[in-house]
């Protein structure tokens, strides 16, 4: 069911783009941009909801109930809910678009990795998922070379004089991840000190984790991460939510 409804259509779209452009790296980039553009309305809605939530949290009544009921969680929740209703804010509205994106993101990962068909078992699985009526025999195996990379292997850029290759893509993924997380935190409602420190941890740990994944897994996936981060940054810029401070990983100030 999951494969038929999500992974298979995405996989075939990716292969169709590959057949069109003849370069798998380029196909991943176009594919990612298309999917992110399709998800843009959801992202926009999520940002709007987060802004409404931010506004609510700056309301004196919100601060008052936080102070008043800080030792009574049940009452606090009731009062918060009343305020949500009064101000017409749906607390779940900023989560829902994100939740809808989850299956898409899962499907994207799987489609990219499946398309690479690195091993006999993976290629066997891939061939079973290609829609009939398509001359896939000519298409496979995917040529996974892109720039200096083999997209089915972890990326390293060999530099003269160095005895090892530099994980350029992983560094770029981590850096753009920082920029994106900085911009995202600008539109995330602030909460308690604990929540804020958690937010900071996420701002730094998430990009580092994606950087680690990029260094370890097939670079096709890292290319997806990088493209996805760049598209997000561009979208935040279009929405006027990007500041030059966001480009400073450890010194960015939140607006």
């Amino acid at each position: 069911m999951w494969t038929t409804l999500v992974v298979q259509p995405m996989l075939n779209l990716l292969l169709w783009i590959y057949a069109l452009v003849g370069n798998f790296g380029l196909a991943i980039i176009i594919f990612t941009v298309l999917i992110r553009l399709a998800l843009y309305p959801l992202m926009r809605q999520q940002t709007k909801s987060a802004e409404a939530m931010q506004k609510l949290q700056q309301d004196p009544r919100w601060r008052e109930i936080q102070r008043k009921y800080k030792n009574d969680r049940e009452r606090l929740a009731q009062e918060q809910m009343k305020l949500y209703q009064e101000m017409g804010v749906n607390p779940f509205a900023s989560c829902l678009p994100m939740l809808i994106q989850i299956p898409v993101i899962f499907g994207l990962y799987q489609a990219i990795i499946l398309a690479l068909g690195n091993t006999p078992a993976q290629l066997l699985e891939l061939t079973a998922l290609i829609y009939p009526g398509w001359d896939a025999a000519q298409l496979l195996p995917i040529d996974s070379r892109f720039l200096w990379m083999g997209l089915s292997r972890p990326e390293r850029l060999p530099l003269p004089g160095l005895g090892f290759g530099l994980p350029v893509l992983a560094i770029l993924v981590a850096y753009t991840g920082f920029v994106q997380a900085n911009a995202a935190s600008r539109v995330t409602p602030s909460g308690s000190e604990q929540a804020q420190s958690m937010g900071k941890m996420m701002t730094y740990y998430m990009p580092l984790m994606l950087g680690y994944f990029s260094m370890t897994f097939a670079s096709g996936l890292a290319l997806y991460f990088l493209t996805s981060n760049l598209v997000s940054i561009a979208q935040y810029a279009l929405m006027g939510k990007l500041s030059w401070q966001d480009f400073i990983p450890f010194g960015g100030k939140k607006g």
């Binding site: 936080q66 994100m98 995330t188 929540a195 740990y205 998430m206």
Partner: peptide, 13 residues
């Protein structure tokens, strides 16, 4: 605030 904390954790999860 609890919700905010959870919102921040879910991308990691």
């Amino acid at each position: 605030m609890e919700r905010t904390t959870h919102r921040l954790w879910w991308p990691l999860i």
